[in-house]
Write a protein that binds this DNA or RNA. Sequence first.
DNA 1: TATGAATGAGCCTTCATTCAT
DNA 2: AATGAATGAAGGCTCATTCAT
Lengths: 213, 213, 213, 213
Amino acid sequence: MPRIVKDPEVRRQELLDAAEKLFGTKGYAGTAVSDIVREVGVSQGTFYYYFKSKDEIADAVIDRAVERGLAEFAPIADDGGLSADRKILRIIAHDRRGFDHGRMGGLFSRIHHEENAFLHQKLLARVVRKFAPVFARIIEQGKQEGCFRTDKDAALAAEFLLTGYQFWLDAALFRWNEEELEARLTAIGGFIETILGAEPGAFDLKRIKEREN
Amino acid sequence: MPRIVKDPEVRRQELLDAAEKLFGTKGYAGTAVSDIVREVGVSQGTFYYYFKSKDEIADAVIDRAVERGLAEFAPIADDGGLSADRKILRIIAHDRRGFDHGRMGGLFSRIHHEENAFLHQKLLARVVRKFAPVFARIIEQGKQEGCFRTDKDAALAAEFLLTGYQFWLDAALFRWNEEELEARLTAIGGFIETILGAEPGAFDLKRIKEREN
Amino acid sequence: MPRIVKDPEVRRQELLDAAEKLFGTKGYAGTAVSDIVREVGVSQGTFYYYFKSKDEIADAVIDRAVERGLAEFAPIADDGGLSADRKILRIIAHDRRGFDHGRMGGLFSRIHHEENAFLHQKLLARVVRKFAPVFARIIEQGKQEGCFRTDKDAALAAEFLLTGYQFWLDAALFRWNEEELEARLTAIGGFIETILGAEPGAFDLKRIKEREN
Amino acid sequence: MPRIVKDPEVRRQELLDAAEKLFGTKGYAGTAVSDIVREVGVSQGTFYYYFKSKDEIADAVIDRAVERGLAEFAPIADDGGLSADRKILRIIAHDRRGFDHGRMGGLFSRIHHEENAFLHQKLLARVVRKFAPVFARIIEQGKQEGCFRTDKDAALAAEFLLTGYQFWLDAALFRWNEEELEARLTAIGGFIETILGAEPGAFDLKRIKEREN
DNA sequence: TATGAATGAGCCTTCATTCAT
DNA sequence: AATGAATGAAGGCTCATTCAT
């Protein structure tokens, strides 16, 4: 086989891309290292030149996904001209749009698969740990702006809502059908609103959809 | 070598017991069928006489665990002399006691293990689907009694809170340390209370603990 | 493939036979487990049903070889009608005959191979530890009979001579050519004689050969 | 990454040093080429610039060790003012001192390791072939001086004793404990003495130790 | 009902070596 | 003289499952 040398960082990303795709398609256990290297078109040895083990690439895939998600939402979170409730609305809308466009999972996650509990869990903890602080800051902002009337700890509220959002809306996990999912999508807005003490209808996801159009 | 014949139902339960114990200890993937039969003291063949596959016994283990949980909480849920908020308090307290006594997991689940995502997920859907109706009924009761002031759909609220409870408090999942867990344990009472529109302090888990003593 | 069930002990011996043959032919490292099972005509899984690892079968092969050697020489060592020096002569002669008949190695060992140092060493320690006591007893006998005039410790002398015999005559190890080997074969008789204080010519291996014919 | 150019001979020695150290620590098979280059801080390619293969560096390591040993003992062997028995005593004492100072192996060898049979054997043949002539000359000297009363062939006696010494005292090989090793250390002096026809006590290694102090 | 020998596919990983730069 | 990315063969081992008895 022709020996094609590439910039290491490029190779690494290729491997990560392939792994992410396959993990999402066939699951972690269902994906063999040989599948990954075949996808990329490199040798088995090359894989182990870049990653110490299959487990390590899983971690790397997840880390990258989380970072990517963080980067995606940072502009919204840091936008000085937005009120706290608008920020949250936008983030949810953004996430939902991804969701509606065939990305399987809930918040920030594109590595869902029916039999992919392993990665899903790995991802979860990291998502919550990384994103909760961002949300917490938004919640704090809202409390100061007066649009969130609550005395709950912002960080814990962020964690709790994130966890519920991440899991409850995970169709692959609960095997919700479309209708069931729709109902929960609507309901969760209300729960967020209640927990944060926002004004009624602030997170009405139906209104969001309409606005999007 | 000695061929010991037992009542089929007894054998089946022995196998389920062994599987539950090992799944909880070593995880699903980490437990080989050979481990299970060794634990029980029967042959590989016997296993496949009772269960079509390893997957099937996993389902059976989970089903049994859920039924057991349901049976455990039914008396509380059906107690005609208890107000809705007391019922929920009791259920949480009961669950916590199990938790404090070395049962690893959150609600109703004794099959937690750091590397047991597969079973954990299988369990979750069933727990939520099975228990949510029970909780929903309690919530309805509370709304009628007036102690829960909310117009949210009882079934969905039950699902959402159950999901959050089940996952957020899963120390194995998030790797919470004791202190972190304690903080979340306290906080979740407030979230339940807010969602259900109960009076402040109704689900203060600290008070629960004190009462228990 | 047709599933052929055999008595476990028979299967085990078949595997040991194949392993011994292949280890001797291609060396330990050079022999793959797949080679062994192909030779026997069973599946890879069957191998691991009988042996936990490749290492374990190596130990078993060696143990069996040592036991076999021990059994081969026991009748001579225990022969009540033989003087000590005749016993040693016979043992050497017996061993040499094996040697001349294509068994590659030195004493009791049929697992020699140019690149088989690993097994060779494993074997050595066990040979020396197991056979030395037998020889020691013969030496004691000789001391009492008066044909061995020495005050050396029988056990240590046995060990030392066995070690020298085992290694020095190992053609695969030193790459002796035939002539060189012949010379050492002759010389070692004299060293044994001197160490044991036997009468001159007692272990003249040339005379042995002649007698054998 | 920084490309450091060194005198080729220096580089070669660095590689040999690293290889010798690692072979002695982790064994030949247990040492990867990548371990060696990491130790030195050069690239894989550099290794293959200096040595054609892993095998070749093993040979080189052994050659160097043997030459070093030879150089170490030459002054004693060539010392015109020493009697033959004193020379042998000194050589053994010198070797023992190395032994006592943590060099693992027996005579001249610092490449011992429990799982290092491969190198050990490679070394042995060369040690015996190279050192035997030196010893043979000392033995001849002793025969002429009259302190060794034997008619055995000096070269063969040297070989035989060297072989026994090298292997019997190899604690890693036989897994002798300290006490067992001590006993064999004492005994081997007697065997050398007997084979060479030296006067009783000539090679009493206990006396050697005392003299050393 | 129960046994346990037998299957076989498949997987992760290691590592000596090559070669374009 | 040196780099380090890339190769690819090979190998040990696990384990769910089957089946003759």
